[in-house]
Amino acid sequence: MNKNRFKFLAIAALLFGSIACTDAERAKIGGLGDEFKVELINCDGTVGRTWISSGKVLSEETSDGYFFKEKETGKLIEVTGNLVITKL
Rank of each mutant, 00 (worst) to 15 (best):
G33C: 05
D44H: 06
K71G: 05
G48Y: 09
K75H: 07
L14P: 03
E70P: 02
D64A: 12
T80K: 11
L15K: 08
F6R: 14
V79Y: 12
E70R: 13
F16M: 08
V57E: 04
G65D: 06
G81C: 00
A20I: 05
I41Q: 07
G48V: 00
K87E: 02
E72K: 15
C21G: 01
D44E: 11
L58S: 14
E78I: 05
G74C: 03
I52Q: 12
C43G: 06
S18C: 12
L58Y: 14
F68Q: 06
A24S: 09
W51T: 00
S54F: 04
T62D: 14
T62I: 07
D23N: 14
E35W: 08
A20F: 08
G48S: 11
S18F: 14
N82G: 02
A24Y: 11
L14R: 15
V38C: 03
G74Q: 10
S18G: 10
K56I: 04
F36Y: 11
L76P: 01
T86F: 06
N2M: 08
E78H: 12
E60Y: 15
F16D: 00
I11E: 10
A13H: 05
E72S: 09
G74D: 04
F36R: 03
M1N: 12
S59V: 00
A27T: 00
C21R: 13
G81D: 00
G65Y: 05
E25P: 00
C43S: 01
I19D: 07
G81V: 00
A27K: 10
V57F: 00
T86A: 09
E70T: 02
A13M: 07
L15S: 12
N2Q: 13
S59I: 06
E70I: 05
R26K: 11
Y66S: 03
T62R: 13
L14W: 07
I41A: 04
F36H: 07
T73Q: 03
K7L: 11
K71P: 05
M1V: 08
L9G: 01
I85W: 10
E61D: 11
I19Q: 05
G55R: 09
G81Q: 06
I77E: 09
R5P: 02
K28H: 15
S63Q: 15
K87H: 11
I52E: 13
L76D: 12
F36D: 00
I11D: 07
N82D: 10
M1L: 05
T73N: 02
